[in-house]
Write a protein that binds this DNA or RNA. Structure first.
Lengths: 127, 127
DNA sequence: TTGATAATGATAACGCATTATCAATTCTGA
DNA sequence: TCAGAATTGATAATGCGTTATCATTATCAA
């Protein structure tokens, strides 16, 4: 919740890109998308703002197996993700199958879970 | 399936450690465990044998969200994992909740999933 | 036992994502 | 409009997991 925050063109575009993407983005993906609006935008600025927005609670980190951290607008409280095996992009899955904690073997106390689906996104399913 | 494979003490111990651990191990964990038997064992040897055993299909890689790759003996065809929030260790969960692919939104074609449970392992639940 | 060679250990090197540095630029309140 | 401070861009530096290098050692078929 650091406050001396200025509204720079770069910051606006980064947030807008994350917002309109509607899916978790890698720093590199975000950089590329934002570059379309602000050609000179540097990768360091992407990381700086990502961290800043994360600290403010505006963004949340998304970790998938074997993948680098992605970031998305904090919206739905608990949901899962779908990764396309073809293009590698990650999408939100609205909803949760519910309690999966009962799968824990005896002696284990489960209090949470992460689920990732794999397959083809609409774009890649068509092709 | 490279064959000129010799039975070295190091290789024996590494396989034995993975086998008796009964859970996925990080290269570093494996190194530490194996060191107990072969004090001079180097980390490079751990990585070399991990890759070799993986190529031979004796081991399989285990990727969890935000974690480095772990390795375990290839046994159960499809199962999931439990990570302890306290000690960080990863354990196998026998069984699978079944098809979760139906959660995919319209337009998406899901053909697989990964599931990780979080909580406390028996050791840490006791403490 | 021996010779050919695979394997090892120590460590330098690498790849890659992320962060620090710093001069130049841009905001913003006064 | 202006000064002070935050922000940016370019890039060097960092951290860390993994791999390459190479001299030495161990394995194993003959």
């Amino acid at each position: 919740m650091s406050f001396p925050e200025r509204s720079t063109r770069q910051r606006q575009i980064l947030l807008a890109a994350l917002s309109s993407a509607g899916r978790p983005l890698l720093p590199g993906e975000l950089h590329e998308i934002a570059r379309a609006e602000v050609p000179g935008l540097g990768i360091a600025t992407v990381y700086r703002n990502l961290k800043l927005l994360l600290d403010e609670g505006i963004l949340q980190a998304v970790n998938l197996p074997g993948e680098n951290v992605r970031y998305e607008i904090r919206a739905q409280p608990h949901h899962h993700h779908f990764q396309c095996r073809t293009c590698g992009r990650v999408f939100d899955i609205p909803g949760c199958p519910g309690s999966l904690e009962h799968l824990a073997p005896a002696g284990f106390i489960a209090d949470g879970h992460e689920l990732t689906l794999y397959g083809r996104c609409p774009d890649c399913a068509r092709a």
